[in-house]
Design a protein around this nucleic acid. Sequence first.
DNA 1: TGTACATCAGTGAACGCGCGTTCACTGATGTAC
DNA 2: TGTACATCAGTGAACGCGCGTTCACTGATGTAC
Lengths: 240, 240
Amino acid sequence: MTTGTRKRARRGEGAALHTEILDAARQLLAETGSDEAVSVRAVAERVGVSTPSIYLHFADKDALIDAVCESVFADLGQAMEAAAEGVADPFDALKERGLAYVRFALANPEHYRIVLMSRGNAANSAAHMLTTSTYQNLVESVRQCQQAGVFSRDSDPTELGTSLWAAAHGIAALLISNPALVDPDHQMLVVEQVISAAGLGLALLQRIPQQAGDPCPADLVAGLDAALGPPQAYVGPVGS
Amino acid sequence: MTTGTRKRARRGEGAALHTEILDAARQLLAETGSDEAVSVRAVAERVGVSTPSIYLHFADKDALIDAVCESVFADLGQAMEAAAEGVADPFDALKERGLAYVRFALANPEHYRIVLMSRGNAANSAAHMLTTSTYQNLVESVRQCQQAGVFSRDSDPTELGTSLWAAAHGIAALLISNPALVDPDHQMLVVEQVISAAGLGLALLQRIPQQAGDPCPADLVAGLDAALGPPQAYVGPVGS
DNA sequence: TGTACATCAGTGAACGCGCGTTCACTGATGTAC
DNA sequence: TGTACATCAGTGAACGCGCGTTCACTGATGTAC
């Protein structure tokens, strides 16, 4: 059932098919959302080429899936950078990155799922991830917040970055697995709440005295009330 | 290759095999961590029974996997309740629930993975999840924090619960996918930081004036500094 | 108490399926002379 | 300019595999008389 509509590549133009295969795999992934469902056969058919042709361009199925993950992860990083571009305040920039992260995840749920919610692809491995510019940019963003006095300069920026990442990943993953968990109208509000709370919470946590035993939580809350007033239901920032 | 070591159940004792199958599936899942890897054949062999016997107790493979998820999710809920038991302060109790959640996830990574990180099992569906006591207990815990003045009484407790859940799920999922992301010695410290920051962050967020436009983040941080002093690197609560 | 029979937990063998991968091949493209 | 040849992108058919599931069966257990 090969379609045969494709023209054969000229000498040295094999790279074109390489890209087409990658794109087709991404497409298929977006439609099905599972690497199990993206079969070598299906990719070949989508491209309009015979199944064994895939092996001319990728060593095996894993290599293909890994390449897809790599490219999705790079796009995620780009979305984050674009969102932070031109934002002067580093704490704001950090938040924008976080929001862009979740926006990307919700806009590309099936891609996000395979890159960050499934097991055993090379892209999703600590050793590799820590070297990506996507992650390095996040850490750099945290570092700028440390310089600006939001977080302590004595903290490990990668550790803070991981904590913030966890918040973004958590709400993204939860909403992807379970879109009905929150009312669609409130969805971005909840996302924003989670992202903001993670950043503010870490900043606050670093300002609570740790030496003299746990300040009891009731006192802590009383302190917040004294300084800032009683809590109000969150209705989101005016600007969004 | 059926082992045949089992004795046949007496009349009306079919339920025993039902339980044995469930346990074997959980065992297998813990070893492999993927519902794809848990095959009906493998489960049958583990129990010491022929493959078709499984169908005497479960309609099909999905029903079996769903039953496993159900039971894991119930255990998770129990772990959370046990951790919160006897903790007087509701904000503390909420935190203990969160810590227990992540501890359970890290102790049972493969079980956690299939219940909360994979797609398409009945247990992991919003409609069902919202009715579980595991989730209801979390919401109740949030509600008690509202009564105690930690969070506004005007907030939606399920929405706050979801936000807190996101933080716990995020760090759990990240560390399960990627254990090397943080130094093992710091692992629980990071977890605690994320959980605490989520709770504190939401409490703080509700105390920031929202009417008169965004308070600019620099002012916000300056306010924290004025009230509480400059940030210090987090070294964790004394008590843990 | 003994025997014929119904019940039902569990079995062995087979089904069709889609998968990743391999292999010997074809035939258009470019090159050497 | 023409021809023989090397190259290499792409193919068709087949491989073995493990899977979920079905089906006609077996034989121990309990029951009716």
